[in-house]
Design a protein around this nucleic acid. Structure first.
Lengths: 207, 207, 207, 207
DNA sequence: CATGAATGAGTCTTCATTCAT
DNA sequence: CATGAATGAAGACTCATTCAT
């Protein structure tokens, strides 16, 4: 079992000056990550690009992992909130209408900062990230489950655990791939429509 | 643009001794990767575990990236061959039967060495990997497309490019997640069945 | 030759508030030193534990060395005063009685704050300490010399310089070791008695 | 409880080349320690002065502590061996003759490399050193005890444990101080004579 | 005077890679 | 070809100290 290291920020910025500093650090981290990749993202480089001394960086983040974790948390939250709020609005909306909306929302969430999302997903070590991302996933899964229970009578699949898994994974991975790899197919709504079709067929149609 | 690094093995092992050495190195790499993770996989450690001098390692691999790329290629090929051969056998089989078989094959492919697959997917830097993996993906997509063309009359979706995308991504990501995260749901065939349902609904059912 | 650093307090506390601050800093330093060791004693930690800002710390001490030196001076003084006052009282007392008393006093001095004494002795860099400690030693040596001159007729050794050296070092190092390493042998007076024996044999007996 | 870190050399030099390297590192460490003090002794500086890359240093010593520990061990052994061999020769020699010889030996031991000894004693963090030094001390104490038992009939003090403590500490600290602080008093044998007197008075004379 | 944010030189250490033997 | 000693750029992180507010 690997030694635990704290991944929470060391102290919260209280004065305005500090807030600016922390922001600069986070922004610089995001920029280097997206523009140059994870292994160019040394703490010294980050500090430099942030126009801040390396000491200041460590005043707010106990270690590199915490810094990245913080960025992951921020970005994940931003995405999750989009989806959750939409999911909330859709609770009483029938699947025929809700699913297209959900797909739209998930795509929108991935479009918030696609490059950052890609790097965070592909290059950043999973260690320690799991908590933040895992949490988010659980929350969404829970909402999805709630929705499916609410509309259980109208849908074909019976085992809700499996359905949540299938549904969740599919939207996520398809929207992710769509945004990252086929943005051109997204602009005219074709791909979005097709993803919707996949999900609706699964949920609604009779064999 | 990063300096180009050769990622192909420096020379093909021609004598038996060489083959043994290369094998030992690859095996050691795989073991360290699965048992200890990417950041414990230093070239010196790999050489040591392989029972080979660090100098010998560099005799066969020009750099670390090439070594890892080689492992990725091997592993990807192993998986891809399984799927391709099945896809080949299924060319003339109707979707109702072919899709369940395909799902079975993709799951089997992911089960070849799940731990290694997980590490390769999550921890290993993407940099030089894309070529190998991309190739494999393209090949499978092509076969999938061929199949869909062959059975185009029987299936609902009309835009084959989109369908290949949807189908390919879905099977891959669902089977991947299934093997990595829910092996227990796989053993009794439930999850497999549900993945099949998703795909068949999409391909076959009328709205 | 290293750049000279001032090791005297920057200003003497004149207001009460200042005195309280300085006290808090010194106490915090002593606590961290004894409880966590020298390398945990960063100025920031000290200030924090003292409930004082790092800026304030530097208001009263020009640098870390001065802070530690101050602590050393205080502690040394405390010890030295104990011994000096006893030595003063014993000036007219014959060795047979004075030596046991001296041993008792030196042990008592080392028992004032043994943990702090140990840390100061073992872990704290010698650099700027010598002055304070050296002074103290000189004063005690001088008094010891005075005493030996006063009772020169009764004692065996003739070269007083040497005798002071032997006597001073012996008591100091034996009492030090006794307090630090064998406190259990001190409680029943055995070790104290034996140290006394050593010194009295040396001073008084005929060969 | 502080985390344990290995303090033993990482690998023993087997080729001649390596031996030279290790020697250079040790020598450089000793030089910097004696000429500039412990806090100038950074691993990079040591490597540089040794004319060796920092990587080579870490090939043989897992960390700085191990390097210093190694030096301490070497130096301690050198001293201890001198004393032990003399102590061995003196086992059957009566105190009147043995004690002066012992004093001579301890002084000689401290004169092996006085500057290094001083630094090692005063500046080097105690952590991790204890094992080597402690061992040495125990060995010498054991031999001393053996000697005192052998000549128990001739000596005054009865509690051998205490006697070993008193004797051991006194010689050590007096000889140490003599070599470090009063080398001039040593050259003409006066101080040596006086130390001998102290010990002989204690051991032999009747009250 | 107090505060605490900011500084940055300097520390230990790792690891991919080379090259003399 | 094999070996493994040697390399050194580079990275994460600390901490005494300063200075604007």
């Amino acid at each position: 079992m690997p030694r635990k290291i704290r991944t929470t920020p060391r102290k919260l910025p209280q004065q305005d000056r500090s807030k600016v500093t922390v922001d600069a650090i986070m922004t610089a981290t995001a920029r280097i990550l997206t523009e140059e990749g994870y292994d160019k993202a040394s703490t010294n480089r980050i500090a430099e690009l942030a126009g801040v001394s390396i000491g200041s960086l460590y005043q707010y983040f106990p270690n590199k992992e915490a810094l990245v974790a913080s960025l992951v948390a921020d970005h994940t939250n931003e995405m999750v909130e989009l989806i959750q709020s939409k999911l909330n609005d859709l609770f009483d909306v029938a699947p025929e209408v809700a699913i297209p909306e959900l797909v739209k929302a998930v795509i929108a969430a991935h479009a918030v900062n696609p490059m950052l999302h890609k790097v965070l997903d592909e290059e950043v070590p999973r260690v320690g990230r799991l908590k933040q991302v895992g949490n988010a996933e659980e929350q969404i899964k829970a909402m999805l489950r709630g929705y499916l229970e609410r509309w259980g009578d109208c849908i074909k699949p019976q085992n809700l655990d499996l359905t949540v898994f299938i549904l969740g994974r599919s939207v996520e991975s398809l929207c992710h791939a769509a945004v990252i790899e086929c943005p051109e197919l997204l602009s005219d709504g074709q791909l979005e429509q097709e993803i919707t079709n996949l999900l609706l067929s699964y949920l609604l149609e009779k064999t």
